[in-house]
Design a protein around this nucleic acid. Structure first.
Lengths: 338, 338
DNA sequence: ATTTATTACGCAACCGATTGCGTTATTATG
DNA sequence: CATAATAACGCAATCGGTTGCGTAATAAAT
């Protein structure tokens, strides 16, 4: 109870060498079954626990996967993490999770800390303002698997897991147009991030295809914080040609917008139709229920987890699966009804 | 670039011993400032990085805090985690997060894994069905700080961080009564968990105080999953004396109930008044907006983080702060209007 | 029975720090 | 100037495993 027993204790009581104990415990082929059995049963008898610190030092691996996300407290991100955790846990890996709080500086710090902690792999969803990527150089140089999820960046030898944001943006926009909208507003997150810029491309493409009007007033870049809702509302009201369709970067912000619009007597969907993004639980609980794009966060996490594990196992399907694209899906609800 | 340099490399190039290098790097008093400066500048010059694995083995500490939560993908829990992470990160600790998925078996596994990984402390929010607590014995025996948050259990030498659930339950119930409700239903989570059983006590106390009717039909125990909404609705409709007030264990489930009740033409709050719990973002986005109890998840996380850190630092205020109770607050919105 | 292959295990270096204790260089004290 | 205190640093054990290589023991081959 007081003293941890080590392989040396086992070796001594069994009259074998520490190396033999170690190999027995790891089921090494060069040890006879008889000896293995003796070692293992004695280990159980004495309550032997392997000391991870020693293993880590010896093998230079930590059995740990690092994760950097912008924020933990978003339903989408925590759902992704739930998926990652499940896979990692099943594979015997621990997850060290840190948040950048949408700041590149903190992202850098976290990347460094996790690197120093010796994570075996790193999963990243980028902060809003991340513009350079030197903080990932160490990982690439030392061949530590680096995988970007959702908010990604193309770096050599790094996998990415995303959905087709451009197509999703296109489909969302076209849906609004099909429902009769003529003057659309895309309320976007930070356009430096792929997810928002790609959706913008789809937005513009759909508008062009259907010969609608378009200028800069059709785009509103926002930090999507609750405090920014009023700016969005102001933008919507302060326009020469009234908007009749809103494509909002996420469901929560869309729900806030709907609430405020209703307050100023704008009817959803009669006056303005609204489509969100993510299919957060909230989207089917608001009134009117929110049309949205289903973004399978849990599956995303599971895939990210599996991808990391297979990298770590050295499975050779790395090159072909360098970029995984998940299927999204338009979910039509009341907020875009004709 | 290729080879990590160690304190031995530094020692050799500087002509000192490895011990001196180590002490210099750790600002040990028995080393002269001149030598420290030499060591440090040379370390920077050569790009020395301390090997955490070796430090861990040597010190038998991991600079890591373990966390077990029932589910990552709930807005409340992820908010708590965000608070914990912020404090831990600032204090230089990494967070290993795992989820029990509401299963005691997985909780046991996670507790064991984290113990074997050598976490310096453990934060736990219990699974629904956790009934025995042997899996925490190792922590207590080895004096590894163990702190329960939200869903807690009283174990010797363990801190707990909660709100006064009984009082919160009382206040929620009394609010319904004050708004004119006569026949209340408490839709609860698993009553083995303190949060739900305590709220039940408050619920019963308020009912007794105001001389309302009460029997077992006034309580409905549920797993609070979306699939269980229909059971709740069935229970509400299948009653001799119609319920006119609902106290629901969390906002999301409350929102689902409201949605379904509206579908069957029951008006909220006219026919039935509803109060939720947690003050999730969703509570102010549904129609009608949801009266609820504010449960400061982020602050809870921050306090939990600070508590752990102070334990680890050996700050002596452990006994007095053995149980921290946060302030909750009733937030009155439309769903309980007269 | 002798040689050759295998099998099973021991030896000891190594991973990269930390730290108690002893020793030398330096400064203070009488 | 001799001696006691300090200050500054080196030595070497220690943390608890892993692993390449060598060797003894056993089995197979001739």
């Amino acid at each position: 109870m007081d003293k941890r027993i080590t392989i040396y204790d086992l070796a001594k009581t069994l009259g074998v060498s520490a190396g033999t104990v170690s190999r027995s415990l790891n089921d090494h082929p060069s040890i006879s079954q008889k000896t293995k059995d003796r070692v293992i049963s004695k280990a159980n008898e004495l309550g032997y626990k392997t000391n991870k610190f020693a293993v880590n030092l010896s093998t230079q691996k930590s059995n740990t996967i690092g994760v950097i996300v912008p924020k933990l407290n978003s339903i989408f991100m925590s759902t992704v993490l739930a998926g990652i955790e499940k896979i990692a846990n099943e594979a015997g890996y621990n997850l060290i999770i840190s948040q950048s709080l949408e700041s590149m500086e903190k992202e850098k710090l976290n990347a460094k800390t996790l690197y120093d902690s010796g994570v075996d792999a790193l999963l990243v969803s980028l902060a809003y303002d991340t513009t350079d990527f030197d903080h990932f150089a160490n990982y690439i140089r030392n061949k530590i698997p680096l995988i970007f999820i959702d908010r990604v960046h193309n770096l050599p030898n790094c996998s990415t897991i995303i959905i087709d944001n451009k197509l999703a943006g296109y489909e969302a926009t076209e849906h609004l147009i099909n429902q009769g909208c003529k003057n659309l507003l895309y309320i976007s997150g930070d356009l430096r991030r792929n997810v928002y810029s790609e959706r913008l491309k789809g937005f513009q493409e759909a508008i062009a295809k259907h010969d609608l009007i378009f200028d800069n007033s059709n785009i509103l870049e926002s930090d999507l914080s609750p405090g920014s809702v009023k700016h969005a509302i102001a933008h919507i009201k302060d326009t020469s040609i009234p908007f009749d369709g809103l494509f909002v970067a996420n469901d929560t912000f869309a729900a806030h917008c709907i609430k405020e619009l209703k307050k100023v007597n704008i009817k959803i969907p009669q006056d303005i139709k609204v489509i969100g993004f993510n299919n957060d639980p909230i989207s089917e609980l608001v009134t009117p229920t929110l049309t949205t794009i289903n973004y399978p966060g849990y599956e995303l996490g599971v895939l990210a987890g599996q991808s990391v594990i297979s990298h770590l196992n050295g499975d050779i399907n790395l090159q072909p699966t360098n970029a995984i694209t998940l299927r999204h899906r338009l979910i039509i609800r009341e907020s875009t009804l004709k």
